[in-house]
Amino acid sequence: MTETKLTARNVDVFYGPKKAIDNVSIDIDNGIVTAFIGPSGCGKSTFLRSLNRMNDTIAGARVTGEILLDGEDIYAPSMDPVALRARVGMVFQKPNPFPKSIYENIAYGPRIHGLASSKAEMDAIIESSLTKAGLWDEVKDRLSDAGTALSGGQQQRLCIARAIAVSPEVILMDEPCSALDPIATAKIEELIDELKENYAIVIVTHSMQQAARVSQRTAFFHLGNLVEYGETSEIFTNPREEKTKDYITGRYG
């Protein structure tokens, strides 16, 4: 049962006069993992950041075309980027826990959005988020320790828990494992697989193996263009485009 969660129609993204994304149209479905792959500088991260309007925070960045979340234009004047980002969460390349305790890291989102009306409710959110992120058992006895004191992989799972705590509908992940070792990476991948039941997940990745392991659909970007988009199994075994084939067989990238 897949339904379309995010729809992009003829999207261009500019940084000042430079065009970083050229006429991309794509449908992203609920309940599965969609991977964006491509050589570095191909615009996959740029496009990801336009899906929750994080590009707004970069001076000179401009998005044209249409991006719809459940049929609503997220760039419409009536759309509040603050409310949008509560619905479309994001996990970054390098783990970026706030310099606060583990508890406070997760409580931050629910608190600003007023999602808990009592301490007990907040505690429940903390526990369920950490549990979903597979971190609860490791940190339940030291919730007041600094988030920055955790290992890299734990920090990244903390950041995922932090995103989940706001109960978003979509989770965007920008190369979430690029700073982690293989064991931590495996844990995160496992986690992504579990989470896809409840969220639409988009993951930008540098590694084709990772895309093949975790995603159901894959989009291949090259020089700001969406070259090919389809079932992951199709893309990796039987790509339609010559460029995709060259990339996945390692001829460049």
């Binding site: 509040d80 509560a86 619905r87 007023g114 109960s167």
Partner: peptide, 20 residues
């Protein structure tokens, strides 16, 4: 799903306060 959380009147009111 959780969509309802973010479209409730309480959330909208809180959002207005936060923007103020």
């Amino acid at each position: 799903m959780s969509n309802s959380t973010f479209s409730s009147p309480a959330f909208a009111k809180r959002l207005a306060q936060r923007h103020a």
